[in-house]
Every structure is written in C-alpha cells, then in structure tokens.
Design a protein around this nucleic acid. Sequence first.
DNA 1: CTTGACCTTGCCGTCGGCGTCAGGGTCGCA
DNA 2: TGCGACCCTGACGCCGACGGCAAGGTCAAG
Lengths: 123, 123
Amino acid sequence: MRIGELAGATGTTARALRHYEQAGLISSERASNGYRIYDEQAVVRVRNIRYLLSAGLTLDDVRAFLPCLDGDVAAAAPSDKGLRVALERLAVIDERIAAQTEARDRLAAALRERIGGRIRTVA
Amino acid sequence: MRIGELAGATGTTARALRHYEQAGLISSERASNGYRIYDEQAVVRVRNIRYLLSAGLTLDDVRAFLPCLDGDVAAAAPSDKGLRVALERLAVIDERIAAQTEARDRLAAALRERIGGRIRTVA
DNA sequence: CTTGACCTTGCCGTCGGCGTCAGGGTCGCA
DNA sequence: TGCGACCCTGACGCCGACGGCAAGGTCAAG
C-alpha cells in the first residue's frame, strides 16, 4: 500500500507518517517512481505508535518500544532494554499524573472554600 | 521588592516573571524609573503559579484559578464569571487526568502481559 | 493529451513556556 | 566619572508533533 492508504487505515496523515519515518519509527520500501510502499504490518505498527503517543509518550519514548511494536517476539525478552525503558517511562507518567491529581485536588478544595459547598466535584 | 529579588525568592527568573505578567497572571507597580515593584503577596502568588505549572497545568489553566490563589479576592462572588471559568477549567483538567490515567493503565496492562511481544491496540 | 488525484522533498508556521541576546536606561559606590 | 549590577523593551530561538504550502514528478482515466 501507499502512504495515503496507510494514513487512511490508521487514522493519521501522510505528513505524520513521513514524520514517523524521519524519527526512525517506521520504514518503507520505495517503488521505482519513488513512492513509499508499506505492507500490512505497517498498519499494526502505526496503530501501536499512535496508541502510545495518545498515552502521552513522546516519539523518543516510543522508540524504546520498537521491538514490541511489530510482534518481534524474539527481541522482547524480559531483560529487554526497551522493556526497561518502557517501565521507567511508565513511572515518569505515573508521577506526572500524581502531580496533576494532587494539584487538581488542591484547586477543587480552594474552589469549595470560595463557594461554600455549592460544588459537586467531579471526583 | 524588584523583579530580581522576587525571582530569587520564588526560584524562578526575571524573564519568567515578565512572562507571567504578560500572560496576566501577576501584576506590578512601577517605580518612577520604570522598574517593576512587587509586594510580599507576590511571593505566595508566584509560588502557587509555579506549583501548578510543575504539576503540568498550563498558564491558561492557572489563570482560571488566580482568584483562589491569593486570598485577597473580594471579587469572587458565587455567581462570579471567574468562578464559572474556574469550574470549567477544573472539568478540563479532570478530563485530561482521566485520559492520561486510562491510557496509562492500558499501557501498563500491555506491558505486564507482553502478549507475543506486542502491544494490544484499540482495534 | 490533458486533467486531477496522488506522490515526492524542503522548509516555514504553530503553540507553550520560557532562554537568550541586543541595545539601552538607572543605580550605588570608589 | 566610570564601573558593574541591576532594570527595561522588543524580538528571535528552541523543543515536539506535526500542518501546510511550494514546486515539481507520476499515473490512470477521459
């Protein structure tokens, strides 16, 4: 498939796919006319990338998951470097969420003070 | 106090303080020579701002809560517009946290299982 | 043979939270 | 009176994840 089709199949854009390639997250064959050519694997791979990005990871973070993105089982041993990096990133994300949650609670408390219990807080 | 002193007292920089002012988060008197002059309140205010920023909130988020961070706000009546803004902003923050948390959980689950070395996608 | 839908590379624009000059005023002190 | 430390206002730079445009190549259909 060509880049437009892959974009359509993964809910992204050709521009983003070129960006991922530039970042070393995906690769492509080239047709004789220079067009990028992808196989079915690419669909899974790109969806995985998008998924990780939507989880708040950066492209750099995602790079650490590359061995896992494809179903390349052999590379994903428990001692795998990518896995360790991933767990570290997960810890960072946890910290970020915890910080935001604490801040949110303080803000909600401040608001409650101001309006004397008229708030039903979301949490 | 002048801007450098406030910066020192809050662990930030003069540049950042000017930025906050430009964003409407803090205000200052001006001395006859044009220098910004701050009172003690500003220290608390800036520390609050820094705390919220470090928790991952944006300047826009912070702006919505400023009336609550200062204590001196006679302007925050229950029906106040600023209060509505703050509530909306709180909802936005909650959504953001929820989205991050959900993504994080799925990511953590995927990592735990390591199904065939592959991360499960939404599809 | 032309249209128009696709593709290519390259490079600038965007948003947020500042950093970092550049170019110039304003102090206090020796 | 001159130095150094501070302050001022622009205005451009940076990172991240692309968007969007320019200027052109490619290809099937009409």
